[in-house]
Design a binder for these strands. Structure first.
Ligand SMILES: [Mn+2]
Ligand SMILES: [Mn+2]
Ligand SMILES: [Mn+2]
Ligand SMILES: [Mn+2]
Lengths: 217, 217
DNA sequence: TTTATTGTTTAGACAAATCTAAAAATTTTA
DNA sequence: TAAAATTTTTAGATTTGTCTAAACAATAAA
């Protein structure tokens, strides 16, 4: 069993990992809001436990065991977010902090029953995929809205930024999960996007467009 | 805000408190599965924070602030137990350990929404009363089954022992919350009780009878 | 290919919660 | 009420996770 803190490190390393590239000490430090020296200490400990592969000055990667542990925490986080939104009427910008705590509750029975109670959801309230109990993700074909061209149509199926301010902004524009959109024009000079959201014409900045995920159809 | 550990101390002191009698260091140590020396240290810390009244060698009592904090943890514990039984189909002997973890989740919104989702339950799966958000308990008139005499009738409305083995034993005998009982005879020589549980004749030891709570009617 | 810059690790210290062993206070018993 | 037993506290250490400051390594710039 891992401590609350160890679990958080594993989860952060997981989220920072891309295609087998080792994750840097400073990147972890920034995410966890701590100092690089503390990260080095913890990495050594996780390495002892064979949860990460660590070579001095070369950063870390997760071992298979570490990856499974991390994915399980992600699974719990996202299931709890679904619970909060679907059952307790939380808004999608209110769930993250509480899920950060709930994800550390230790009980397999609890999480399997919760999964069942929620009717085995495949995505969380932000469109992020929920792995099954074996750590397998359903493949989801997302495209960033910022990659679309005029005339393209699709459905909003996710966001890649979870801050409350961003989510509230989308809410205000009516850009929530499940909404159909159609690109009218991508403006040359600032990359901002003019689009229809179910008849309604709107304009969003390139920055916002980058964090909206679309399934083309 | 208190730490996880501080919260556990407050809760234990609350449960050990009876009619303003100070709670002894050793009693706390036993409940928390720690050593008396550790308890003394923590008590000093809680005293600093004005959560307990502490006089060296004289034991502790909760301050008003400490008591409210403790009751809030009890409230959370019991609401989560209701959730686990009513919504996730846990058995009454399976909920306590998980609730021990869930009770420390920090979110007022969460707990108020959960209360609402569960339809404002007044008692938990063991018949223990759930305080409202202001810390007020509904008055419940319980009598220990061991205090009843032959001919007395009533309904099982609670238990004062929460171990899994005890609860499973009751389950086996059909002695679960809501069941109507009638005392046939209290045996002289060992205090064991012969009773009807909805037509079915059963015999239980005095020890078991002491931990079953009855509403006479 | 030296020098600067950036990133990482080590050394030593600290706070929280725990422990053991010994000292002190309280309560019980004789 | 003095001795014995029990309970509680203190002193000093330990573990976990953190920090600062300084040393070290890797990378970028000159
Ligand atoms: Mn989240
Ligand atoms: Mn999410
Ligand atoms: Mn319980
Ligand atoms: Mn209970």
């Amino acid at each position: 069993m891992q401590s609350y803190t160890e679990e958080n490190y594993l989860k952060v390393i997981y989220h920072l990992s891309e295609a087998n590239h080792p994750v840097q000490t400073n990147a972890i430090a920034e995410r966890i809001q701590t100092k690089a020296a503390s990260v080095t200490d913890m990495i050594k400990k996780l390495s002892e436990k064979e949860l990460v592969n660590y070579v001095k000055y070369q950063g870390v990667t997760l071992t298979e065991k570490g990856k499974l542990t991390a994915i399980n925490i992600v699974r719990k986080h996202r299931l709890w977010e679904v619970f909060l939104v679907d059952k307790l009427n939380f808004k999608w910008d209110e769930v993250h902090e509480v899920a950060e705590e709930l994800e550390h509750i230790q009980s397999n029975l609890l999480i399997e029953r919760l999964d069942e109670f929620l009717d085995f959801p495949k995505v969380d309230p932000h469109g992020d995929p929920i792995p099954d109990k074996h750590g397998n993700f359903a493949e989801l074909a997302f495209v960033k809205l910022s990659k679309l061209n005029s005339g393209d149509k699709g459905t909003i199926t996710g966001v890649s930024e979870h801050s409350s301010s961003f989510l509230k902004h989308l809410e205000k524009l009516g850009l929530t999960l499940g909404k159909r959109i159609e690109i009218i024009e991508v403006l040359e000079f600032d990359g901002s996007v003019e689009l229809f959201v179910e008849q309604q014409k709107t304009n969003i900045s390139r920055e916002v467009a980058k964090h909206i995920l679309i399934t083309k159809n």
